[in-house]
Amino acid sequence: MEHVDGNALAGPLAEFFSFDVTMAVAKCEGCGSIAELARAMVYASDAGTVVRCGSCGQVLMTLVESEDRAWIRFTGMGAIEVARTSAAG
């Protein structure tokens, strides 16, 4: 199969990244529990934000921010489930 370059992601990812992140559902790769991110435990400090599974405490994601850059890493979660906003489109 032929591939295209990453510019082809602009359409599908624009929809994906417009969701309400707290309503997104993720599966913890540690204990397997599936839950909304809003149920996770968030440890926020000046060093960064660490999101841990509400069931087992494993790190699900991290967010680090500097003055001009930010890093997000989905460390311990599998696929992320979001509600489609353009289902009728």
Binding site: G48, V64, W71
Partner: peptide, 20 residues
């Protein structure tokens, strides 16, 4: 842990090795 998530692999304050 932090070095995988944006912080510098080494971290010398005199060289301001804060982030990647």
């Amino acid at each position: 842990f932090w070095e995988q998530n944006g912080y510098h692999l080494h971290g010398d304050p005199w060289k301001e090795e804060r982030y990647w």
